[in-house]
């Protein structure tokens, strides 16, 4: 057994069996995380480098905890304060890290496709921790895992993804993942933040957020990624909050209790109000908790046979 891929670059490359296997393994790691000793010695002979060319709180901490709880050695690298500012290339940086006998690389990069490029040039397994506006596979896995925990099998379930679809790697990975698991997906937000032809990915578009909320079982609310918007796409944050933000009043006007998710970091009062983010319907902190178990599962399943040792 094991995954059908050597790297976790995107959800696009995974098949349903891979996703199911990651979930099954995450169940077991979740058990481990509830014990008094939240640690297993599985990867005591493995070193993982977390290479972050972009800011991160949750993802990096979550990966680091996952690695440590698997017994692996961890080195952290962030672009700020490194030799990247002196002009070192991506391949040179990573090859230098690998020369120090590192077995696996977790990478976040602002350029879409960077992990694929790296995978063509180095031998170590790579886990994509977010590349530009393309994919963020572990986030999508933990989102789907959290939804499944709350709702059971996702086949036929309705998921609305709200907000900045255009610049969100979480949105794209979620769409791939939910499609593979048989859920129905609607994306919603201002027309300027929804890419043209997104229907070709098998999702529907609903520009009215209220209608999308009425339709769905789960709403995954995304952050407005101002750092990636190089031209004005809506007038003001206040106007965005008024027309596209999710607030308690809106939720109360819907007859059913929908599940509210957010991948973080939250801009309170913009895409989501505090009275929603902190409500009983919100599973935002549950997502963070599941993140560690999901990442342990991915790292474990990718750390199989090593070429040199397989000849024994």
């Amino acid at each position: 057994m094991g995954l059908s891929v050597k790297h976790l670059l995107g959800i696009k490359e995974l098949n349903v069996q891979d996703i199911e296997q990651i979930f099954k393994t995450a169940d077991n790691f979740k058990q481990v995380l509830q014990r008094p000793i939240k640690k297993v010695p599985t990867l005591r002979d493995t070193t993982v480098a977390n290479v972050f060319f972009e800011n991160s709180t949750r993802t990096r901490l979550s990966f680091e905890l996952a690695e440590k709880r698997l017994g692996a050695d961890v080195v952290n690298f962030s672009a700020s304060g490194s030799s990247v500012s002196k002009g070192e290339t991506l391949i040179d940086t990573v090859n230098n890290i690998l020369a120090m006998k590192v077995d696996m690389v977790v990478m976040r990069h602002s350029a879409s496709g960077a992990p694929w490029f790296l995978a063509n040039h180095i031998d170590a397994s790579i886990i994509n921790a977010g590349d530009g506006t393309n994919e963020h596979p572990t986030q999508a896995l933990l989102d789907a895992y959290s939804m499944r925990e709350k709702l059971g099998d996702l086949r036929g379930k309705r998921v609305a993804i709200l907000g900045d679809i255009m610049h969100s790697r979480v949105a794209l990975s979620n769409i791939y993942c939910l499609n593979k698991l048989g859920a129905e997906v609607v994306v919603s937000g201002p027309p300027t933040l929804i890419p043209k032809h997104i229907e070709s990915l098998g999702v529907k578009v609903e520009y009215n957020v209220k209608k999308a909320l009425e339709w769905c079982d789960v709403a995954n609310v995304l952050r407005i990624q101002l750092e990636r918007q190089h031209k004005p796409l809506f007038s003001t944050l206040r106007e965005y909050a008024m027309y596209y933000g999710v607030n308690k009043q809106m939720l109360d006007s819907i007859e059913k209790d929908i599940v509210i998710m957010h991948p973080g970091p939250i801009n309170r009062g913009v895409e989501i109000n505090s009275d929603v983010a902190d409500s009983k319907q919100s599973i935002i902190l549950g997502q963070v908790e599941n993140g560690v178990a999901i990442r342990m599962a991915v790292i474990y399943l990718l750390s199989g046979k090593r070429e040199a040792e397989s000849q024994l």
Binding site: M1, G2, Q21, K24, T25, D27, N28, Q31, V32, V40, P41, T42, L43, D45, T46, L70, Y300, L301, S303, G304, K305, R306, E309, S310, L312
Partner: peptide
Amino acid sequence: DITFYRDDVHSADIHVPSDT
């Protein structure tokens, strides 16, 4: 379940864990 305590993670095929 002893999967996470095995000493052959890198020399055998990945083992799928069972429940403890």
